[in-house]
């Protein structure tokens, strides 16, 4: 930390007003580069985990233990030809993958990795997160429409309806967090969960139903199994990215996995105390907060993979029913319950 401060001071003296944009750019690179690396290795871990769950070995040919597999896959996708279908809207067809990836990366600006380790300590952080996660659907809709293909369009329509439905439940779950923390700043939300008793102070205890709803809605928002109706390969080929090849396809993949990591990070921040240690005693609180944050994120990412290996895909009407008839009433009631609970002396958080 002191080293960082001296570095910042030095840069300030050296470059003057040009230093701030440069320093911010550096911070962005420091956040985005590990996310991209994480995405690459998440695909590898996904294939390994799915493999072992299905009694297979998974990729093990490229590099030791198959560790170079993501690099090989990335290279392959880079080398492939970009095919633009005839009759498609060329500009939007090319712009769609970019529109899908952009909000997935932009949302990381307000995510705290450890105490003070945050790009933008914005007061309206929670609102910003909601706004950014709701923008990801544009890439999918535009991709489906611009492809000029029936399957892609069906996938896009499914995705739009799904994301709009689950966003409501997600928003109400976050209203409960907001009530409990009395702040929309993500750093303050984590600090609100610090009460000296370790994990007993985390919001997943008073807001347990919201914790479950938020994570399931997160799985649905990212179009992951069992909610991957937008790319339902047994029904609509590959859904919205049927017509994409090479790097366009890779960008959609990057966006999906970056969104998964984001949902994992957000669930840890909102409900599992972000960078806080599970027990506030000697060996645990000596470990840096970043480690705890990453451990919690890894847990949720494993859940994503576990879901994919375990659950059969939802039917579309079941998906809509779960969103509108189960999650939204449940979250609405819990908002009232939490608001009333907080007025009583039994609120201990």
């Amino acid at each position: 930390m002191e080293l960082l401060q001296t570095l910042e001071q030095m840069g300030q003296d050296l470059l003057g007003p040009a230093w701030l944009p440069l320093w911010t750019l550096l911070k962005i690179v420091v956040i985005v580069a590990p996310i991209m690396g994480g995405v690459a290795y998440l695909t590898f871990i996904e294939r390994k985990v799915l493999g072992y769950m299905q009694d297979r070995i998974g990729p093990n040919r490229v590099g030791y233990f198959g560790l170079l597999q993501p690099v090989a896959d990335g290279l392959k996708l880079l080398m492939k030809e970009l095919i633009i279908p005839s009759g498609s809207n060329k500009f939007l067809f090319v712009a769609a993958p970019v529109l899908a990836l952009m909000p997935a990366l932009a949302a990381w600006a307000v995510v705290p990795f450890a105490d003070g380790m945050i790009l933008s300590n914005a007061n309206a952080g929670l609102l910003y997160i909601l706004a950014m996660t709701s923008l990801g659907v544009y890439g999918i809709i535009i991709a489906g429409w611009a492809s000029n293909s029936k399957y892609a369009f069906l996938g896009a329509i499914r995705s739009a309806a799904q994301i709009v439905s689950y966003e409501l439940a997600m928003g109400f779950a976050l209203v409960c967090v907001l009530l409990a923390a009395q702040s929309m700043n993500l750093g303050d939300i984590v600090r609100g969960q610090q009460n000296g008793y370790g994990m007993l102070g985390w919001y997943f205890i008073p807001l347990f139903p919201m914790f479950v709803v938020y994570f399931i809605a997160g799985v649905a928002e990212t179009n992951r199994a069992p909610f991957d109706l937008a790319e339902d390969e047994s029904v609509i080929v590959a859904g919205f990215h049927t017509e994409y090849s090479g790097m366009g396809f890779a960008l959609f993949f990057l966006a999906e996995y970056a969104n998964m990591i984001l949902i994992a990070a957000l669930t840890s921040v909102f409900f599992l105390g972000g960078w806080l240690p599970p027990l506030d005693i000697a060996p645990f609180n000596e470990i840096p907060g970043l480690f705890w944050m990453l451990a919690k994120m890894s847990f949720f990412l494993f859940l994503f993979l576990w879901f994919r290996a375990t659950f059969p895909r939802y039917r579309y009407d079941q998906l809509m029913r779960l969103g509108w008839k189960v999650f939204i009433p449940l979250t609405l009631v819990w908002v009232v319950v939490v608001a009333a609970w907080m007025q009583t002396p039994f609120w201990l958080w």
């Binding site: 309206a124 609102l127 706004a131 709701s134 809709i141 329509i157 739009a160």
Partner: peptide
């Protein structure tokens, strides 16, 4: 607050449904 709500409500929800219908 107003700026982010504009993006959240109009861009994130209303325009998605608009596009949905127009397409």
């Amino acid at each position: 607050f107003l700026a982010i709500t504009l993006v959240l409500v109009y861009v994130g929800a209303v325009m998605v449904l608009f596009l949905f219908v127009v397409m």
